[in-house]
């Protein structure tokens, strides 16, 4: 039985136009994914293809006007906005994408400590250990979120995701953009270690090259639909083994490959 199974998920938004007139937009039409224990699934696709919404739908943090269709199963149990509460932050950990998820008026070290277990001295020790693990300096903890650069912020978000011994699934939403190579490797290695300990990892990203370093399988999203789901090994130098045209295009247009000539 897969750890997480998403079947035919759709997400619509019920929006108001002028006055009382309403209309429905459907950014996610049909997404299906599956993650097993200890497996890393990379979810790639254009911005606006519904990658982040998928994570938000699983975590039950969509805005109030969202309408969710299809089914999400965690270890065989159907989950929805209400039942996710008992897994959220425990069995399922979430690393958000946006820096807006940090409290702007609180030193980052204190924000990280909030979620950690134990008494104060243990939490301080744990937080400093986490910072070290992600290549953050001890003095960085005294900064406020606005003083952090994009890459540092990502790493701080990582440390706040509270991966605990109970965690069985980690959802990381774009953990890599704006981050430098050495920091990137740290983050990727961390995810790999997490997966090796038997935790399922969903890595949402548009950085295919980095994702391929650790991913077992790749799911490609386009316009709110899953267009391709293939093993990571299919992505080879020239992309000839990629059958789906969109996937092949995505692969070839990378700056490491043909880049502009692919267009």
């Amino acid at each position: 039985m897969p750890l997480l199974q998403v079947n035919n998920l759709s997400v619509s938004f019920d929006q108001y136009g002028r006055g009382l007139e309403r209309f429905v937009t459907t950014p996610i039409r049909s997404l299906s994914i599956e993650i097993g224990k200890g497996e890393i699934l990379a979810v790639v696709g254009a911005s606006g293809s519904g990658k982040s919404l998928l994570a938000h739908a699983i975590m039950g943090i969509l805005p109030a006007n969202a309408i969710v269709g299809g089914e999400i199963k965690f270890k065989g149990n159907l989950i929805d906005e209400r039942s996710i509460k008992k897994y959220r932050g425990k069995q399922i950990a979430f690393i958000p994408q946006s820096v807006n998820y940090l409290d702007p008026s609180m030193k980052v070290k204190n924000q990280v400590r909030i979620g950690l277990p134990g008494i104060k001295s243990e939490r301080i020790e744990k937080q400093e250990h986490l910072f070290e693990k992600f290549g953050l300096k001890k003095s960085d903890g005294d900064l406020y979120p606005f003083e952090l650069s994009g890459g540092m912020m990502r790493r701080v978000l990582f440390t706040t995701s509270m991966i605990s011994p109970d965690t069985e699934l980690v959802i990381a939403d774009e953990p890599t953009p704006g981050i430098h190579r050495s920091a990137l490797d740290l983050v990727l290695n961390q995810l790999k270690t997490i997966a090796d300990s038997g935790i399922g990892v969903m890595l949402i990203t548009h950085d295919i090259i980095s994702a391929l370093k650790i991913a077992d399988r790749v799911s490609v999203f386009k316009d709110g639909c899953t267009v391709d789901d293939i093993p990571a090994s299919f992505f080879s130098a020239d992309g000839e083994s990629l059958e789906n045209e969109y996937t092949r295009m995505l692969w070839k247009s990378l700056p490491e490959h043909s880049f502009m000539e692919a267009i």
């Binding site: 019920d14 108001y16 009382l20 309403r22 109030a64 006007n65």
Partner: peptide, 11 residues
């Protein structure tokens, strides 16, 4: 329920 709130406000 979501619609009613807006109607109530407008009423």
């Amino acid at each position: 329920m979501k619609i009613d709130a807006r109607k109530k406000v407008i009423a």
